[in-house]
């Protein structure tokens, strides 16, 4: 179905949102932050790919790369990226609970319970990864 482009009616006043519309409500700001978080997560993933590539270039190249990551700038970046990743994940889990209706028989499982299950799973997976990490380190 095609939509006919809107034609302005004479006499009507057509408001236009200003470029700063997203500062108007707390929820808009949070939304923009959630969108922005993807930039940081993307940079982190590129970095991870580069790191894996360095691994294939031999121990010396890898060590040099890791050394560069120790700079205050990169550490600051990782702290920010981690904060964004956490924010993104937490809001995502809360949202999936609303989106994915889980039913047991005729009753709907309360969204909060679904979110709790998500968080629990997340925690367990994180612990398992941490365990292997500590084992390897």
């Amino acid at each position: 179905m095609t939509t006919v482009p809107r034609r302005d009616r004479p006499g009507f006043y057509y408001p236009k949102p200003p470029a700063t519309w997203w500062l108007r409500r707390p929820n808009y700001v949070l939304f923009m932050l959630r969108e922005l978080s993807s930039v940081f997560i993307a940079i982190f993933l590129v970095l991870l790919l580069v790191q894996i590539h360095q691994l294939s270039q031999g121990p010396a190249a890898y060590a040099a790369f890791v050394e560069r990551l120790r700079s205050p700038g990169w550490i600051a970046f990782h702290v920010v990226a981690l904060a964004f990743a956490l924010y993104h994940s937490i809001t995502w889990f809360n949202l999936t609970a609303v989106v994915q209706v889980v039913r047991l028989g005729e009753r709907q499982v309360p969204p909060r319970l679904v979110a709790a299950a998500n968080f629990l799973l997340w925690g367990v997976v994180s612990l398992v990864i941490l365990f292997f990490f500590l084992l390897g380190g």
């Binding site: 809107r6 006499g11 009507f12 006043y13 057509y14 408001p15």
Partner: peptide
């Protein structure tokens, strides 16, 4: 917000 204003506080419902 976001609707054409017809007059004062009245907006257009057409859309």
């Amino acid at each position: 917000a976001n609707f054409p204003v017809v007059r004062d506080l009245v907006i257009s419902l057409d859309d």
